[in-house]
Amino acid sequence: MSASFASALRAASDAASAQHYPQGTLYVVATPIGNLADISLRALHVLQLADSIACEDTRHTQGLLRSYGIEKTGAQLLALHQHNEQEGAQTVIARLQQGQRVAYVSDAGTPAISDPGARLVAAVQAAGLRAVPLPGASSITTALSAAGAVAHSGGQDGFVFAGFLPAKSAERATLIAQQLAHEARCVVLLEAPHRIGELAQALAVLGQRPVTLARELTKQFEEITTQPAQALTAWLEGSPQRSRGEFVVLLHPTAVASDDGKSLQVLRLLLQELPLKTAVRLAAEITGASRNTLYDTALQWKRDGATPDGEAS
Rank of each mutant, 00 (worst) to 15 (best):
A3M: 02
A3T: 12
S4W: 13
L9R: 15
A11H: 04
A16L: 09
P22V: 00
G24P: 09
Y27W: 02
V28M: 08
T31V: 13
G34F: 07
A37S: 12
I39K: 10
S40H: 06
S40K: 03
L44F: 13
H45G: 11
H45K: 05
S52E: 00
D57W: 03
T58F: 10
T61V: 04
T61S: 11
Q62M: 06
R66M: 07
S67E: 13
I70P: 05
E85F: 04
A89H: 07
R95M: 00
R95W: 00
R95S: 08
R95F: 00
Q100E: 14
R101S: 06
V102M: 00
A103Q: 12
V105S: 00
G109Q: 07
V121M: 07
Q125C: 05
A126Y: 02
V132H: 11
P135A: 14
T142R: 01
A143R: 00
A143I: 06
L144I: 15
L144Y: 09
S145W: 02
S145K: 05
A146Y: 09
A147D: 04
A147K: 02
A149C: 08
S153W: 05
F159K: 00
P166L: 03
A173C: 05
T174P: 00
L175D: 11
I176A: 04
A177Q: 13
R185K: 09
G197R: 07
E198L: 14
L199Y: 03
A200T: 09
V205G: 10
A214V: 07
E216R: 08
K219I: 09
Q220H: 15
T226P: 03
Q230R: 10
E237F: 07
G238K: 01
V248T: 13
L250Q: 02
L250G: 08
H252T: 12
H252D: 02
P253L: 01
T254F: 13
G261M: 06
K262C: 06
L267C: 07
L269G: 15
Q272A: 15
P275Q: 13
L282P: 08
T287D: 10
A289Y: 15
N292P: 09
N292K: 07
T293V: 09
L294P: 08
Y295K: 13
L299N: 13
L299D: 10
L299S: 11
Q300C: 15
Q300Y: 13
W301T: 12
W301P: 05
K302I: 02
R303L: 08
G305L: 03
A306K: 14
